[in-house]
Design a protein around this nucleic acid. Structure first.
Lengths: 354, 354
DNA sequence: CTGAAAGCGCTTACAG
DNA sequence: CTGAAAGCGCTTACAG
C-alpha cells in the first residue's frame, strides 16, 4: 500500500487535486460543503501532508538549522530550548547539529543543512571559525543566518550575545572593591573571543582600582570540568594561592572547586571563587557560587526572533544585540568573616607583590 | 539571481541533467573527464544540492526526528547529544522538538515531523501518552520509531530504557542494609511509569529486609528542582524526619537538599539522601550524592542504532533493551560515623514505627 | 558513455 | 466555485 497523496484524496471525493490543495490552505475559494467532504476523505484515508513537495514549489521549507558546539553546558541546553520554543510558536521546525567545537564538523553540518534547504541558520561558531568561512558557506548560499554567543570579529551579521567585556568588568569591580589583589583567571580555550573579552574586562576593572592583573595567573584550558581541575592544578603548582579565582564558566568552576578541596584549600574560606554563566547549579554549590548571568534563554529567544525577522525582511540592516550581564554575589565571594581574615593575609603579603 | 540547479550546471558544461545527477552520485557510468568538468562547474557556479527534490523522488529524507520532553535535565541533554552523534555518523540529520511533557504539543510535533517526511522518529513519550495515541500517529503513518526512557505499557515497539525496578531495588537494598527503616520517596510525576517502577523496586528491596515502605512518605511532584523543594516541604510538614530520602532524580534531589538545609536539616548527617541519574552534578554536591546511573549516553546511542536498523530492515522483530543501572555510593549515604549515630536514634525510635 | 522522458507530491496562475 | 496544465529540482529506467 503506497502513501496517500492529494490525488487519492481528490479521486475519493471526485474533485481535482487543485481543489484539495486549496482546502488544505483553507482557501475562501472553495465551498464549505466541498471542504467538509474533502477533509472527511483525508481523515478516512489517513492522508499526511507532504511538506517536502509543497516546499519544493513554495520555496520555503519552514525549517531552521541550529549548529552549536554541544549540550554538556547547561547554558547551551537552555539556549537551544529557547530557540526551539520560539521557532515552534512561529511554525518552524528545528534541525540540530553539534559541531563539538570542531571546524570540519561544523562545515559538514552547515553544508548538510543548506542541502536540506533550511530557511535560515543559527550558528554558534566553533573555535577556529573565521569570517571568511562563514561567508563562503552561508553568505554564498544566500541563506539568512544569525550568529550567537561567540562574536566573529570583522563580520557584519546579526549577532546576539552577552557583553563579555562588561561581564568580566563586573567580577573585577566586585573583587577589587573587596580588597582582593592577586587574582587568577582559570579555564576556557585561549583562542576563544569570549575568554579574551572577559579577561580584558576583568583587567580593566582591576586597573581602575589600581590592581595589576598578572598574566601568569591566566591559565587557559578546555571549557569543561576537567579543564577547570587542570587549570587549578597548574595554578597551585606555582606554590601560590591567590586571593581570588575567576573561572571561565560555572562548569569550569565545578572542576576548580573539586581540585581546590583535594588540595586542602577551602573555596570561599581560603580563596574567593567567582565565575560566569549563573547556571542553576551555581546556586547549589557549597558555598553557593558568585556568578555572572549570561542569559541563555533570553539569548536563544532573541536569536530566533532576529532570524525570523530577517526571513521576513531579507534587506533589514544587520543588528548586534549585546545583553547586559548581571552579577549575582553569593557566599563564594561574600563571606565577610572570611574576607576579613583574608584581608590580613593580604596586607601582610602586600609588599611582596608590588 | 535564482538558485543554481542541475540544469544550470548541465548547460554550463554542455551535458544533460541526467549526467550531472550521475556525477553527484559518483556513478561509474560517467567518464572521469566529464566528472571533473561537471564538478568544476558546480564549484564555479556555487551549486548546492537540493535534498528535498532528491528525496521526493528517492523516497528517503535522511532525517530522523527526536521528540523529547525538554533539556533542563542533563540526562536528556546527554541523550540528545548521543543520538545526534550516532545519526550524524550515518549521514542522517536530526529534527528536534520539545514537548515540554505536554500531550498536545507532542501530538503537534509528531504531526509536523511526519509532514516533513522524516524517515524515523525517536520518541520520549510525554506524561499522558497512551499506546493508542502512538498507534494513531506513528503506526498509522507507517513511520518507523523507537521509544526511549519511558516505556509504554502494552505496546510492542522498539524500546530503550533503564530497568527502573532494578534501579529502585539497588537503592532500597543499599539503604536497608545500612539499617535505614523510615524511607521517603520524593518528587516525580505520579503518573510516570518510571516513578511507579522505581518505587516498586524500592519497596520490594526494603521488604526483602523486613522493612515496610510507608506510602504516606511517597510524595509525587514535578520532576524538577522546585518539585523537589515542594516535596521536601510537604514531608517536613508532617513533623517527621525520615532516616533516608530517595529522590526521583538528581535534579529533584538538588531541590530537596536546598529545602532540607533551609529547614536546618543537614543532608548526609541528619538524613541520608540518594537519587537517580548520576549526573556529573551529583558528584559535585556537598555532600556528594549517592545516585544510580541511568546511562543517558548509552541509551541515546542504542536508540539511534535500533532505529537505523529498523530503517534498513522494517520487518525486524521489535526489541526492548533494558540497561542495567549502577549504584554509585557517595557521602550522602555513606558517612559511617553519621550512620552509627543515626542507628542509635533509629533504634530508640524503632518501636514507635512498627 | 550520454541523453530524452517520465514522475516524485505539491502549488499556482489561468480558464471557464 | 472548480479543473487542466505547467513547474519546483531532482532520479531512474530506457534507449542509443
Amino acid at each position: 500500500m503506497d502513501r496517500v497523496t492529494l490525488k487519492d484524496v481528490a479521486a475519493a471525493c471526485g474533485v481535482s487535486r487543485a481543489t484539495v490543495s486549496l482546502v488544505l490552505q483553507d482557501s475562501p475559494r472553495v465551498s464549505a460543503l466541498t471542504k467538509e467532504r474533502v477533509r472527511e476523505a483525508m481523515r478516512r484515508l489517513g492522508y499526511v501532508y507532504d511538506r517536502r513537495a509543497a516546499n519544493l514549489r513554495f520555496r520555503r521549507s519552514l525549517t531552521v538549522a541550529l549548529v552549536t558546539t554541544d549540550a554538556h553546558n547547561s547554558y547551551f541546553a537552555e539556549m537551544t530550548m529557547a530557540i526551539e520554543c520560539t521557532l515552534y510558536r512561529h511554525g518552524y521546525t528545528l534541525l540540530l547539529g553539534y559541531s563539538h567545537d570542531g571546524k570540519q564538523r561544523q562545515e559538514k553540518l552547515l553544508n548538510t543543512m543548506l542541502e536540506h534547504r533550511v530557511d535560515g541558520v543559527i550558528l554558534v561558531p566553533s573555535c577556529e571559525t573565521t569570517a571568511e568561512l562563514v561567508e563562503q558557506s552561508l553568505d554564498a548560499a544566500g541563506t539568512p543566518y544569525v550568529l550567537v554567543t561567540r562574536p566573529l570579529p570583522g563580520h557584519a551579521a546579526d549577532y546576539v550575545g552577552i557583553d563579555s567585556v562588561a561581564a568580566g568588568g563586573l567580577i573585577g569591580e566586585h573583587l577589587a572593591s573587596r580588597g582582593h589583589r592577586r587574582i587568577a583567571f582559570l579555564g576556557g580555550p585561549s583562542q576563544a573571543t569570549t575568554r579574551l573579552e572577559r579577561e580584558q574586562g576583568l583587567q580593566s576593572a582591576l586597573a581602575a582600582h589600581g590592581v595589576e592583573f598578572d598574566p601568569a595567573l591566566s591559565i587557559a584550558t578546555s571549557a569543561d570540568r576537567e579543564g577547570g581541575a587542570r587549570a587549578a592544578h597548574l595554578l597551585l603548582r606555582t606554590g601560590e594561592v591567590p586571593d581570588a579565582i575567576v573561572c571561565y564558566s560555572d562548569v569550569v568552576a565545578f572542576g576548580v572547586l573539586a581540585a581546590l578541596r583535594i588540595a586542602g584549600i577551602e573555596p570561599g574560606t581560603d580563596v574567593a571563587v567567582a565565575s560566569f554563566d549563573d547556571t542553576p547549579e551555581a546556586r547549589l554549590q557549597q558555598p553557593p557560587l558568585t556568578s555572572v548571568s549570561t542569559h541563555p534563554g533570553r539569548t536563544g529567544t532573541l536569536a530566533a526572533e532576529l532570524l525570523l525577522r530577517r526571513l521576513e525582511d531579507p534587506g533589514h540592516p544587520s543588528e548586534t544585540v549585546l545583553l547586559k550581564p548581571e552579577l549575582h554575589v553569593r557566599e563564594s565571594t561574600a563571606n565577610l568573616r572570611l574576607t576579613r581574615e583574608q584581608s590580613l593575609r593580604r596586607v601582610a603579603r602586600g609588599g611582596a607583590h608590588r
